[in-house]
Amino acid sequence: MHRLAPKALFAIFTMKTAHKRPNWDRIILLGSLAVSAVLVALYAYGRATGRW
């Protein structure tokens, strides 16, 4: 199960876009990944500084 995330990320970043329209699936996936990473970082920062 822990090997799924790196494989999925590699597949996302290596997708080739042959069409000129924006690939909304990819945009939403990368956006949600960024939001999740920021939330995890904020949680870790809060735990480390003792604010939570």
Rank of each mutant, 00 (worst) to 15 (best):
R47V: 13
A5Q: 13
I27L: 15
F13R: 13
G31P: 00
L4W: 10
Y45E: 09
L9F: 05
H19F: 08
H2N: 14
K7Q: 15
H19W: 02
T17I: 05
L33N: 02
I27Y: 05
Y43W: 06
R3V: 09
M15P: 00
A8C: 05
P6V: 04
A37F: 08
R47N: 06
L30G: 00
I27M: 07
K20T: 08
P22Y: 00
A5L: 15
W52A: 05
P22W: 02
G50F: 00
T14V: 02
R26G: 00
Y45M: 09
V35W: 11
G46Q: 05
L30S: 04
R26W: 03
R21Y: 02
T14C: 03
M15A: 13
P6T: 07
R47G: 00
Y43L: 13
F13A: 06
L42Q: 07
T17S: 09
W24N: 07
L4I: 14
Y43C: 03
L33E: 02
R47D: 07
G31R: 02
Y45G: 11
V38E: 08
G31Y: 05
H2A: 12
A8Y: 10
D25I: 06
A5P: 02
D25L: 13
T49P: 00
A34P: 00
T49K: 11
G50R: 01
G46K: 01
P6C: 01
R21S: 10
A18T: 08
L33V: 08
D25C: 04
P22G: 00
A11C: 04
A48N: 02
Y45H: 13
